[in-house]
Amino acid sequence: MKHHLSALLAGVLFGFGLAYSGMTDTHKVLGFLDIFGDWDYDLAFVMAGALAVSIFSFRLMRNRKFSFIECPIDLPNNQVIDRKLLSGSAIFGIGWGLFGYCPGPALTALIYLEPNTILFVLSMVAGITIHRFLQPLKPVS
């Protein structure tokens, strides 16, 4: 129950932060990615601000097995930089640069009720589903 409330609160804050920071504005995102043109570096400060806070929280939890409300800490332990990681990230970057949305801002931007944003999110879900069914034996963790 408590961990459901914390997930809801975290989601609300995350969505608020995305909308306030400018991440749901594809003009800002594409301006940030346009480093060879008229570069708009504002969104680098979103990452800087987020890291400035979260780096301490993750440091605090590094060696703990349970959270402060006794939920198991679920952190990935894979350390290998492989081709899958890099090619997947490179592919993701292409889609990000094509339209200007990564997954979080795209979901938050659904509230603007733009048909093409809804189309983007449905296609993103389709892309996730295609990946899922190309690897039928891998369980979701």
Binding site: G17, G22, V46, G49, A50, V53, F58, L60, M61, F68
Partner: peptide
């Protein structure tokens, strides 16, 4: 906005794990 996102990520790891 980034600081708020940092607080959100902190809540999720500190409480929900």
């Amino acid at each position: 906005g980034g600081l708020i996102i940092g607080v959100s990520a902190s809540i999720l790891i500190l409480l929900s794990g």
